[in-house]
Each structure stands twice: as C-alpha cells, then as structure tokens.
Design a protein around this nucleic acid. Structure first.
Lengths: 354, 354
DNA sequence: CTGAAAGCGCTAACAA
DNA sequence: TTGTTAGCGCTTTCAG
C-alpha cells in the first residue's frame, strides 16, 4: 500500500512528483518527461514511472504546472445564463472542442449584469485562462464598455485570447451571427405573406443584439414601403416572460397588427402563450415569428417560424479561434443564418385583428 | 503608465505581487494582508497598496495562491449534458451559490460516457477542486463503479468533497430527488383516472434513475392490481429523440394502451410528437405524463402532466453541502417531488386505443 | 506592524 | 539519457 508524503501528522496527504520519483527510483526529469510525453526516456525508466504513477494514483498538480508554464489549460466562458437554451447550446459547442483538447471550461453566468461580467473577467485573469469567451449581446453602458476594453487589453497582455460571440468589440476575435440579415429575412417573409401591420417585440434596449435585429426589421419594412407604428413596438427581457408581458402589453394597448416579430424564440414562446390566453389563434388570427431556432421549438404547436442561428457551431468556432493563436489583427467570423418557415406564419386574416 | 515586470524582451508581462510591493514601497507581507483582508496593516500602507493594485490593475495569480493554500476555490461540476435543460437548471442553481461565494465552476459534460466522467474527475483532482459535484443518474457498469469509488476516495483524501446529485454512492454526500415516489404518484394518478393499459417509456437500462422511476411505476400498478404487459415497456435515451423513437416503436408494435408514462419530460416531448404524427390526440385518445417539470413544458400544447423536480434548488443544495465542510458520515438529502396535473391526462376513451 | 525567507509542486535549463 | 537546481507567484511563519 503506497502512502503519500510521510508527514508525522495525519494532514491531508497530497501525492507529489517526489513520491513518484522515490517509488520509481529516478529523478524528477524522467517523471516529468514521461508525463508530458515526447521526450527521450529509457524504456526501463518509463515503465517504472508509469507503474509508480498507477500505484500512487498520481495526478499532477495543475496549479504547480500552470505556475511554471504560463498556460493553464483553462477556458473561461462568460454567458448571460446557462438556463437559457441559447447559451446552453453555445456552451455545448465549446465543450465539444475543449473535451477533445484536454482543456477545462470555467463557466460563468453573468445574468446580464455588467459588473459581474467584469468581475468574472478579473477572476479569469487570475486563473491565467488561456482564453475568455464572452457570449451574448453587448451591454450598452459606456462606463462598462470602457472598463471591458481595459480588461480585455490586460487579458491579452497576459497572453490570453479574448473571443466574443454575438457581440462586436474592438480588439477581440468575434463570432457574429448575422442578426440584421436574419431579421431582414423574417420581416420580408412577413411582408411577402401580405402583412402590413407588424408588431415588434424587441429585446432590452441596452443590448447590441436588440439593435441589430431591430435594424433588420426596419430595413425590410422600409424597403417594402411599410410605415412603422411606434405603438406596435414593445421591448422586454430576452426571456419567455419578457415576451409574454410584451405581448400582453401589445394586446392591451389595442393597436392593430396581423403579425408579431419576436426578437428571439424565448420571447416568441411567451408571446404565443399570451396570444393563446387571449383566445387568438396562430397563425389564423395573428402570425408569429421568432429568432434563434432553439431545439425545443419543434415541439411547440404551431411550430414557430424563425431564423436558424447555429449556436452549437458558433461555440465550436469560438474555440477554434481560441486555440489557433491568431495573428495580431482581430478576426471576425460572420455566421450566416437562414429563415426556417414553419406553421406560425400565414396570410393575414381578411379583417384585421386587434 | 505603469508597466509590468521589466524584462528586457517584450515577453508577455505578468504583473506580480513584487510589482505592487515596489510601487507601494512595502514588503510582500502588507500586500498579501491587504489583499486577503482581516490582518493588521497600517492605514498608510493599506492606502499605498490599494493605490498600487489599482494602478497596476493587479490580480493575484490564482495558481500560485492555490499552490500554497491547498484550496483552489474551484468547484468541479460533472453533468451528462448542458444542452439538456434538466442539467442546465441544476448548473444554474449551483452557479447562484458559487457566484455569491467568490468561487468558480469548472463545468464538464460527460455525455454519459463513464470513461469521460472518470477522466474529468482525474482532471479535477489535478485542479485541486474544493468539491466535485456529480449530477445525473449513476451508470451501472461495475468496473466503472469500482473505479469511481476509488477516485472518490482519492478526491476526499485530498481534502475535496464529493457530492452526487440524482444518484447514490457510498461515501459521498447526495442530493436525491424522490424518483420512486414521483413515479408512484403519476402512475397512481393514471390509474385513478381509469387507465389500465399504461405504456412505459423508460430511460437507458444502465442508469439508476431509470430503475428508480420504473420501480415507482411498478409499485403503483401492483398496488392497483394492474397487470403489466412487457410489450408495453420500451426504453430509449433520456432525450426528445429517445422518446420519439420509443413511442413510434410502441405504436408500431400494435400493443393496446390508453396512457403513456415517459420517464422524463424530454422523452414525453418526443412521445407527444410521435403521437401527433400518428394522428392521435392527447389526452382524448391517449394520456401522457412525464417527469421533471422542465420550464419549457408550460409552452407545449397540451400542457403535460408531470412530476416537479426542483432542479435549481437541488443545485443550490449541492453547493450547500459542498461548502459546509461536513462531518465524516456522508449526508443524504432526499428532495420531495410533487405531481403537477395539467392537460395531458384524462380518462381513457370509451374504446381502447391502439 | 513590517521585512526576510522558506517552500507549495512542477518544469526546463544545464551539467554530467 | 538522467540528476541537480533554480525559480514560477504567493502566503506565512519568524524575527525585528
């Protein structure tokens, strides 16, 4: 029975490389070499080391390693919320790649709080994360923006990469879904189906995603010569409840519309519930479209027309950028999106619906 | 402009405590004390240190700290899959607590692969994680079980805690939803509504959750004197597609049933889709019940009757166990569950449905 | 209250 | 090919 470092007391005994040395009867060099691979080690020494490692159930102290190496094998991932399937998918994509490369993901939920995002970056700086992936729309607060830029610079000064996903930042690599283009696509689709009174449920005004998707809607409507009614534009949280409340508001205010464009699928889900409760049928009375194409969308009735954002793939791309050291100039990958026509959009009813 | 360690070359310059010392003109002791708080430091020194920390944008190297301290502030979380809302919710609960305590979560997706789970535990051992939370049903492979137990012991030998969530393991604290009791509740509900031919869509045979939920179903049926038809029991992956395939199989085989009990909500969602495609109405033709009460379940039509498992709360409880050092004896918290009656269960139709 | 110094566990020169 | 050794950046005695 191999025992770890023999301290007199019964204190928590960590097995170190020295224990392996002793058991294998070699110096630290061969041990380290066997563990890292790719260096010349005699077959005999290798065998003894491997045996000792097995016997002692030895695992290297990652901190000692990181302290020496300046690379921690840690990937920081800061998202708005894991419980939101949009982010869960992105994380799943990131994990696919990290798992294959022997890295570990440190997951941070900012809950869209700028200061907590900043605090996480700082902690990840302390962890000497090899890369920090920041996913989700940018928050518009200028103080925050400035501080974020500052932290990003320091991160990079430490030799870490910073990758944003779904937001643009000077100085960082970015993976950007074509929010504007996607919104344009849905809006044009709605118009082509004959809608002229299109209500908009947009996200929080402070998020860049909100602005981008709204811009696409605007562009399509302008192009079609459809006038916008400010009363038909309501914003809410990017969540099921946000969409629900926004739709209720729309319904209460009494403006006339034949279709709703929700800025993301969670909001579309909420809007659908509100319409159902109000006794309105989708798409017979009101058409509805969302954005993102969350996996769960298939199981909603009617199936919701939306824009497919390849979240998982985006996660993988972020990791690809994180791992390929990259040149000096920040790289931007625009991710194409596509319209997914399902059952929630139809021609407007003969008589306009409230 | 404060510059970091002044090496001749332009190598990645990390700011260390020595830079702070120099700028604040003190020795390392006060710096460390200010950073850690709670130790006597003169006001003047404290001010200078704080100023220097700010000027240098200094963050302590977590690895150096962990190397000395034997506590890393890292919580390892191993789950089956982030993209599954069940686990996403658990992780969200864990994060609530870690965020408040200044710890960081290292998230690992095992994708239900025993060897990858084991590999992650080993990596987390290397990270000197303060605790490892293992969420999701246990995998039945005996070799794996033995190795898991071995790794768990080592983890604990290193002073780390191990907490399981949704599975029982000798030697680890556990947070256990009442799977058996919940399944019993739904099954009894189905029976009380008049169902006698109840099909079961169960999870993978190798998972402990599967056995527990199946046992609850059995118990209720036995109690009610309802005979079980093995042909009405199909297993599949704990996923939407698993449920879909299982339901299709059920439909194809041609056994007669008036209700389906799906062992989790994702499977219930898949089963619902299969029933819909087959032209069967829920609950008019077939009743359907699930398990877990995923948040998205509200938005499915008809709303699915299920068992509420407080996933988020379970996540919080895991962290509570992780943080409160705990005595020697492993603690087990059983989490009560409750039946949530919605629209997917009704009395069986007059004539039995295929 | 503060300075000096040892050492956590590892890797990578460098010398043998 | 292998042994020796010097740190990586931090905390924490131990003196002062």
């Amino acid at each position: 029975m191999a025992r770890a470092t023999s301290r007199g007391s019964g204190r928590s005994a960590t097995t170190t490389i020295m224990d392996v040395e002793r058991l294998a009867d070699v110096s630290p060099t061969p041990v380290s070499r066997v563990l890292n691979g790719g260096y010349p080690v005699s077959a005999a020494a290798r065998d003894r080391v491997e045996q000792a490692v097995r016997d002692l159930n030895y695992v290297r102290n990652a901190h000692a390693q990181a302290l020496r190496a300046a690379s921690s094998g840690l990937i920081g991932v800061i998202i708005h919320d894991v419980a939101d399937p949009y982010f869960a998918e992105i994380v799943a994509g990131i994990q696919e790649v990290t798992a294959a490369s022997g890295r570990l993901v440190v997951l941070c939920n900012s809950l869209r709080d700028p200061s907590s995002e900043l605090r996480y970056i700082e902690m990840l700086r302390g962890q000497r994360a090899d890369a920090v992936i920041l996913a989700g729309g940018a928050i518009g607060d200028p103080d925050y923006q400035r501080e974020l830029l500052r932290q990003a610079r320091w991160l990079q000064g430490q030799g870490a990469r910073m990758i944003t996903c779904g937001r643009y930042t000077v100085d960082a690599d970015a993976v950007l879904p074509d929010n504007r283009g996607g919104a344009y696509l849905v809006a044009r689709h709605l118009v082509q189906r004959g809608h002229r009174s299109i209500a908009e449920i947009s996200g929080p005004p402070s998020l860049s995603t909100t602005a981008e998707r709204a811009a696409g809607l605007d562009a399509a409507l302008r192009e079609a010569g459809v006038a916008r009614d400010p009363a038909l534009s309501v914003s809410g949280h990017f969540s099921r409840d946000g969409g629900y409340e926004a739709a209720r508001h729309l319904l209460r205010t009494g403006g006339r519309f034949t279709a709703i464009f929700a800025a993301n699928d969670m909001m579309a889900l909420g809007a659908l519930a509100a319409l159902r409760e109000a006794g309105l049928r989708v798409p017979d009375d009101v058409s509805l479209a969302g954005f993102d194409d969350l996996p769960i969308l298939r199981d909603v009735v009617p199936a919701i027309t939306t824009v497919r954002v390849p979240m998982r793939e985006m996660g993988r791309r972020c990791m690809a950028l994180a791992m390929d050291g990259g040149g000096r100039a920040p790289r931007v990958e625009t991710i194409p999106v596509e319209l997914v026509e399902r059952q929630s959009v139809a021609a407007p009813p003969a008589r306009q619906q409230v």
